[in-house]
Amino acid sequence: MNPNIHLPYLATVTGIRSECSDTKTFDVRIKDPKEAKLFVSRPGQFVEASVFGAGEAPFGLTTSPREPGVMTFTIRACGRVTDAFHKLAVGDEVGIKGPLGNSFLDKIDSRGKDVLVIGGGIGLPPLRSMIHYILDRRADYRDFTIIYGARTPELQMYKGELAQWAKRPDLTLLQTVDVADPGWKGYVGVVTTLFNKLKLDIPNTVVYTCGPPIMIKFAIVELVKLGLPDKQIVSTLERYMKCGVGKCGHCCIGHKYVCTEGPVFDYGEIKGLAEEAF
């Protein structure tokens, strides 16, 4: 993190991949090697990324790289800054502030426990950093299940990687869509309809979730009904943000700043907020 909290690092786009009609994934590298050394992210953290002239917006980091100064994030084109990102080419310069916020690792320790990841739509990218973290240390965790819901098969993120995960014997991947197409082999319906396929060891399961507010809300309702304790339900929250460094005031939920005190919260913390988080 730069000591001048408003000044981004200059960085170069090193790779761009299309995920679906309106979403792309960007690989980015901080240019100055000294500054790059300061950029070491942990799963769940985010950056404020700039296209100079268009502005700055927060994006969840989708990997936990082993090398400092490099990062990957996934962006849906849906506004001024995100549209500007979609017009970039490999080699273009962007600005990066971060890594910002806390990590999934700051919450309950899920090593030695079953892990359930519940992702919805473009909520998968921030979860992917934790998924990679666990897969890199697979022996430290017990059963590993991922439920991923999308509106349509076309709108799924990381299709190639999903296919690889589906083949892994040490990982159960359940995929569902709201509206199927003729080639779809997964489930149809919202993510909570798949909960009855799970055999949860309630005291020894940790859930990580991210997705549209409505999905997180209903997923948590069902998990609580199943008896999962608050601390074992971990969610990364999203809010409109301007600065990412605890000053602009936009992302507050009650008295908590999502940018500096989150974005990762457990359900106990979420319940204690003075405003509804979803």
């Binding site: 002239g53 502005g55 700055e56 301007k242 600065c243 602009c248 936009h250």
Partner: peptide, 29 residues
Amino acid sequence: CFDVDDVKISGTEGARVRSWDTCDFAGFT
């Protein structure tokens, strides 16, 4: 509370600026 925006100064120069914002406006969140 403040808003953050990029403004154009010339063809090759711009500035990132912040300006007072209010939680009273619907667009704040």
